[in-house]
Design a protein around this nucleic acid. Sequence first.
DNA 1: GTCAAACTAACACGGGTGTGCTACTTTGAG
DNA 2: CTCAAAGTAGCACACCCGTGTTAGTTTGAC
Lengths: 198, 198
Amino acid sequence: MANTIDGERRRRELAETVWRLILRGGLPAASVRGVAEEAGLATGSVRHFFPSQAELHNFAMLELMATVTERVRAAAQTPDVRERARAMLEELLPFTDRTHAEFAAYLEFLDRSRIDTALEPVASESVRAARELVVTILTDLRTLGMLRPEIDVDTEAVRLHAFLDGLMLQLLVAPDLNSRQQARDALAGWLEALEVKA
Amino acid sequence: MANTIDGERRRRELAETVWRLILRGGLPAASVRGVAEEAGLATGSVRHFFPSQAELHNFAMLELMATVTERVRAAAQTPDVRERARAMLEELLPFTDRTHAEFAAYLEFLDRSRIDTALEPVASESVRAARELVVTILTDLRTLGMLRPEIDVDTEAVRLHAFLDGLMLQLLVAPDLNSRQQARDALAGWLEALEVKA
DNA sequence: GTCAAACTAACACGGGTGTGCTACTTTGAG
DNA sequence: CTCAAAGTAGCACACCCGTGTTAGTTTGAC
């Protein structure tokens, strides 16, 4: 056989092309023809790796989740507990140009999953994973006795999760409302308020 | 002249048709042909009231903001201060089937405004208005001495605004995450935590 | 009743889309 | 070297889109 190695790399390249096009022109820009042209391929070539547009988009969103998950895993290596919590949660926000493009695509997919049942499973899984991450971080803080006693983990998880999603939405669609640094500070301030006084 | 009275009514009808179609099939469903068929008109009739699709969508979003603004104004009549704050902020969340459709359209327009410069002015104005409402409510509470002294209005406004937007996003794209009642309770609980102990 | 304006309707054009299909080129295992 | 598979490329079909244009119908002021 020929390039069996390049197959998955090509698919990942095309997934990133989808993200880039969505950042630039929204989901409609991520057409089969558009992706092919942006990647310098023929439409037939794209369809060789992805039999349908639905599979291309599905893969692009799965790859998106995998990328974010990997970054969260990397941030989980931070030694200090407080720093770790902050670092992990920061990976759920678009703080760099790179991640801004990714979350722009994520928002588009998430929104589309409301209609497109093919995207629904992976979309709701992503939301579930985010909630789980928040709960886990809060539970760890509680176990370590670093959470103010009057705070309920489940109640706080709902608030923090919604706060993060709202901040993400605002950074994407209304970047003038909060600068990235302001958003960073807002998250840091939030977490400080959770902790027991030193 | 003929029905000068019906003109604006027709335009409002078509705006609501746009909302309904967006709820059902996303922004792509709000095509000129789609709106015409849903409203029982010919495409030429729709284009008689709106010279272009851009004007139709722009008007639909303006009408959306006017509707929400009117509801907030009505909620502002609530006598009790605490109840009033809660009632007004609840109007920024999709708690009924009716408002769910409206906010679904709003999210779609907001997302589209990231790309479509024609929607950008009204979109950023809507975000600014929401922020202003939050700030105003918090400022009123502070003036009345009902806000816990350690709370800074501006800091709290950023948090509460992001919390509301996140809750809206989740109610729209991940309705299984939080029920409407849970979201209502979360908002009520948040506001209670802001107030000075009775 | 007249008539201009408001309103409704239908067609055609050019363009973009997803997808199916076929043919060509490159590659690397045997 | 052979040759089957991987990869690339291009075309055609049917569909939907926004929009321009033209024509017919209804309405209400005068």
